[in-house]
Amino acid sequence: MPRKGNKRNIVLVLAILLFSLALMTLNVKQEKGVRFLDSIAGVILSPFQNFFTQTIQSVSNSINHYFFLVDVARQNDQLKLEVQRLISEKNQLIERLASQKRLAKLMAHEDDWEKRAVVASVIGRDATQWSKVVVINKGTQNGIKDHLAVITDAGVIGQVIHAGINTSKVLLIVDGRSAVDALFQGSRASGVVVGVGEDECLMKFVPNTADVEVGDPVLSSGLGGIFPKGLIIGKVSQVFRKKQGLFQEIILIPSSDLSRLEEVLVLLP
């Protein structure tokens, strides 16, 4: 009997391994059937993500603008109700104004490029701990396709890696799989900005002879065909020059705050 149990265990483990490896292989080969699974999961969950994101924003607004007035409002019930109503109204207006300002900033950049752009809201993040991916509320219905550049008014944030019907996944520049061809604004030395799965990026392949200082802005070079030339990626925060070796090790801080993304601009081809 134990032999039968062992056999069953081996079969089970092999089945899990084979199934997972088959999925990985199909995914790497970009089979449409496998991408369909992504879309289905996105379609089902996006209304809930929208709901949660909006609720969080409302709660956050209430805490920011209302919480400290509770003690004052307690003195007079009528006044409290009035204050609540006014604050709620004010919060809505502040939020609308802030959103308009952000959109205006984004749209101002749109005039600088010949490309058309779509404004999208961030509605969710990656379901796993380790990938640096955000979900936006626009998809193929809005003209979004894979490998389109995504930016904010502060600069480059990433590229679309999977465009679903009404949601898309954006790979952030801090993800370990991201690589953007870049150059320094001052010295024009070029390199490749790669993510390492943390809050910072690494700039690779910058020659030891290049003059790089902390605080130097880094721009997209336009090579690679995804990001237009001249978009700001980040600023140099640390430079390590090795005595031996061809290249410097440069750490960048992304220009956009990637942990607080709300509205983004997807640049259409």
Binding site: S20, D38, A41, W130, K132
Partner: peptide, 24 residues
């Protein structure tokens, strides 16, 4: 694991493998 893969930006199958084996 499969659903988590669908909702993440990684390769489909990584979480299926990890969660499947953990459950096993």
């Amino acid at each position: 694991g499969l659903v988590q893969d669908g909702l993440s930006g990684g390769v489909l199958g990584v979480n299926t493998l990890s969660k499947g084996l953990i459950a096993y």
